[in-house]
Amino acid sequence: MTLSNISIAVKNVDSWYGEKQVLKNINMEIEKKSITALIGPSACGKTTFLKSLNRINDLVKGFKISGIISVGGQDIYKDIKKASDLMFLRQKMGMVFQIPNPFPMSIYKNLALPFSEKNNLSSRKRIDEVVVKCLKDVHLYDEVKERLDASALDLSGGQQQRLCIARCLTITPEIILFDEPCSSLDPISTLKIEDLLRELKEQYTLVIVTHNLEQAKRIADRVGFFYQGELIEYSAKDKFFTRPRHELTQKYLAGKF
């Protein structure tokens, strides 16, 4: 990885919930326009790590962090003090959650809201264009074009999750974070989302937390394995799955946890 290719650089990151340490000395570099999968058993720290990247963990009471996470050369914990700078950071990073969480409003408004919040003074026509484009990007447009004014909550789980991805695209982020995006979906919806992720990586840097090894195998470029708050192994996918260095990784891949 060359320096210009690095999207997120993480150095010596420790973090705690209250007294309990959940991340221990994490060092990691995430490559631009690729899919980085974070795997590991539950409660291993992978989701905490992901949610530290856009500081959504700030919402959790008692969350503390030390070390450096730099996004585009900016240390997101030390350099960002003002609420507005935090907003700009989050506009650079979309996030898709484990359980699809479209807002309880129409499909159209779900996309129009974040777009018009980010870009002031947009004409109705411009908003329409963006909504259609983002829906097309996630291959949802044909399914919903007749009912853009219907409530987003009427969509199926898989459609809702694609809508959530489209919602991220409206703010033209550089990075999109996925927190187990398929864990509540059926296999067909899962495959559709995986296809979509492979397309999206042409333009965006994707970081995905998954507990599904097969999924990581299918889509990831690089894989990081978390265990009890530590990043045990982090390498290119082929190397990770065929020649894991660490004993714990081998055990995990063999299903021995």
């Binding site: 609420a83 507005s84 907003m87 989050r90 990073m93 359980i99 807002f103 809201l113 919040e117 959530c164």
Partner: peptide
Amino acid sequence: VPKSYKEAGLGLGISHWRVVTKILLPA
């Protein structure tokens, strides 16, 4: 109102105030 709406709104870089007025109160 489910907490996930707030997380999603903040995650999209919408200011906390706007999340409250545009998402939480309508919900």
